[in-house]
Nucleic acid binder design. Structure first.
Length: 277
DNA sequence: TTCCAGGGATATA
DNA sequence: TATATCCATGGA
């Protein structure tokens, strides 16, 4: 296999930077004018100049699907933009796309993400890859389930996982290919129930896994940022917020969530922080 | 019901 | 600059 550079021009509704900086992926680093991106046992280098995207990889088809560059996202954006409360967020976030990531990697990564911050999550995942992922020319692959199952709970703790170590140990045993295909083939409500049987997976983590790993648009992860942005007198719990917006945005809930998250964290939040300086 | 468990980032004093 | 709080989950 050799690397190949693919150039996509006149791309609409795609911002590489915004898509990567939305909390849906942990394994990417800024390199030069672009990003080095890792997914499962694959890697690409991607750059964007205006509406032109360059992807250099041995796995072109994988990454076109990964970035959802194999489909037109404009109509989803336009549908969400039509909600008055989403117009500003959608216009600030139309380049954000839902990534199609590897389900096993998402389950492990989002167990680590629980009650954690992004820099630390990245560090733990990186150390796990170095510990038992395949060594490649470009770095380390995400470990297979079998490789992860060779680690002890103490190993995970030594890699910085903290109290999530026993959950990772258990997940490496319970999240088999069969489990994943069962979840993949279930409707969203049953998939959620099945994911919640994995130790360390609660409602928020399950939503993230389904949205970023299983392509389920009919999910609406509510973390503390979302709660702060959306809580009202009526919507005063995470569960109420989630139910309300799922009912409102339906199959586009997940994309709406990404728009709101991006807008509040990277646009509104940034302005607020800048003003405080 | 409430508290605690890594530890890095962020907010506050 | 020092200190407190946050984070999402499961178990005591």
């Amino acid at each position: 296999m050799t690397e190949k550079k693919t150039v996509i021009s006149e791309v609409e509704c795609f911002s590489l930077a915004d898509t990567l900086e939305c909390g849906q992926i942990f394994r990417f680093v800024r390199v030069g004018e672009g990003y080095s991106i890792f997914s499962a046992d694959k890697h690409c280098y991607a750059r964007q100049y205006g509406r032109t995207v360059e992807i250099t990889t041995e796995a072109t088809d994988y990454f076109l699907r990964f970035f959802a560059l194999d489909k037109d996202c404009k109509s989803d954006y336009e549908k969400l933009r039509a909600y008055p409360e989403l117009t500003a967020a959608a216009d600030a976030s139309c380049g954000v796309r839902l990534l199609r990531q590897n389900p096993f990697e998402m389950i492990i990564s989002f167990i680590i993400s629980a009650n954690n911050n992004i820099p630390r999550i990245k560090g733990i995942i990186e150390r796990i890859c170095e510990k038992c992922g395949d060594k490649k020319e470009w770095g380390y692959a995400f470990p297979t389930r079998e490789r992860l199952a060779a680690l002890t709970a103490e190993d995970f703790a030594a890699l910085g996982a903290g109290y999530r170590a026993p959950y990772l140990y258990a997940a490496a045993r319970t999240v088999t290919d069969e489990f994943i295909s069962d979840v993949t083939n279930s409707d969203t409500v049953s998939a959620m129930k099945k994911l919640l049987t994995v130790k360390g997976v609660g409602p928020k983590v399950a939503d993230c896994i389904m949205l970023f790993g299983l392509g389920r648009g009919d999910t609406f992860p509510v973390d503390t940022w979302m709660e702060q942005a959306l809580a009202t007198d009526e919507l005063d719990t995470v569960a109420k917020i989630r139910a309300h917006y799922l009912a409102r945005y339906g199959a586009l809930s997940g994309l709406a969530q990404q728009y709101i998250y991006h807008y509040n964290r990277n646009v509104v939040g940034k302005n607020r922080r800048d003003r405080a300086r």
